[in-house]
């Protein structure tokens, strides 16, 4: 069954690059939503640009994931854990794509211009201007971001559980 032992290099680079970006986004996100300080404007601008970069990379990564082989989980892993692992990976992919779309969509609905990379690119609105929708999506952005953070924590704990307790090669497959 174990045709390959590790994720291909492309997957590992994407995984670690995006892990850093997503964690950074979660921290920047909760910070900008709770500050009126001097970094606010610049950090919100960074948050938009980095978020869109994550969206693009997540789509590429999904394509890469479906096209390249990935190592199977250890045969002796209890079925619950296997289901949990697969379900959580699917949910992680979903959130990596949906969360930036909600961010983009909410600013569209709020009637905000959406500049990224300085002022150089203005993203077109992807939803009609609608204040109720803006408020609703702004709440959803928070809920989904917190869900993503919880999932990332569980994912990291699981990875370390594989690496330190089970020592079954799963952590190594991503290093």
């Amino acid at each position: 069954m174990r045709n390959i032992e590790a994720f291909p290099l492309s997957s590992r680079i994407l995984h670690w690059g995006m892990a850093v970006m997503i964690l950074a986004m979660l921290f920047i996100g909760v910070f900008i939503a709770s500050t009126v300080g001097s970094g606010y404007h610049r950090l919100v601008a960074l948050h938009r640009s980095l978020g869109i970069a994550i969206l693009v990379l997540a789509v590429l990564r999904l394509g890469n994931r479906l096209r390249t082989p990935s190592p199977p989980l250890p045969a002796d892993l209890p079925p619950v854990m296997k289901v949990g692992a697969h379900a959580s990976h699917i949910l992680l992919y979903t959130l990596m794509i949906v969360l930036p779309l909600v961010g983009w969509g909410m600013l569209s609905a709020g009637g905000y211009p959406i500049p990224i990379w300085g002022q150089s690119v203005l993203l077109p609105p992807i939803l009609p201007h609608n204040p109720m929708l803006w408020a609703w999506l702004r709440s959803l952005h928070t809920v989904l971001a917190f869900l993503l953070f919880g999932l990332v924590l569980a994912h990291i704990a699981a990875a370390l559980f594989h690496g330190l307790i089970r020592r079954d090669g799963v952590l190594r497959s991503m290093l």
Binding site: I32, T35, V36, G37, S38, G39, Y40, H41, V44
Partner: peptide
């Protein structure tokens, strides 16, 4: 600094 607080 007031500008940042206003935007937020």
């Amino acid at each position: 600094p007031i500008l940042q607080a206003r935007s937020a």
